[in-house]
Each structure stands twice: as structure tokens, then as C-alpha cells.
Amino acid sequence: MSIEVQFFASLRESLGKQQVTLGYSDGLDVQAVWQQASDGAAMPDNTLCAINMEYVKTETPVNDGDEVAFFPPVTGG
């Protein structure tokens, strides 16, 4: 009963953490996962979110065993 949370790039640096494991509880959404994993930090407006490597919104429900990722706007290419 757990959720793996990952932070990338400038979010990883500003929060000082790359990966967090959270206990799962019913009714969790992406916003709630952020609050727990970031120890209550404010989420930057341009933050992008993914569950199991697919883009999602902050109100998307999170299921037991999911991998949730947070990262800033992408700059590849």
C-alpha cells in the first residue's frame, strides 16, 4: 500500500529530494500527494504532473502502487 513520488529538475533541487515513498490512503489525488511529498510546499503554477508516465491534472485520483511525478515545463529538443 504505497505510492512512489518523483521530482525532477528544478523541483528536485528546490525541494531537496528526488524520490519519496508515501503510504496509500483512499481518496488521494495528485494535489494531496504533492502536499504530503513536498512537506506542504506551495506547488509552482507551471508544475506538470504525471501518473505512471502519463500526463494528468492535479485533481486526478491516485491509486495504490502508482508512480507520481512532478516536474517543471519541459525543454528538450
Binding site: F8, A9, A50, A69, P72, V74, T75, G76, G77
Partner: peptide, 14 residues
């Protein structure tokens, strides 16, 4: 291919 990659592929340049 390039526009989608630049808009959505999870890379970050430092």
C-alpha cells in the same frame, strides 16, 4: 515530431 517533442517530452536543460 519536433514540435510535440519540444512541447511534451520530459527533458530539462540546465
Amino acid at each position: 515530431l519536433m514540435e510535440e517533442l519540444k512541447a511534451r517530452a520530459p527533458f530539462w536543460k540546465k
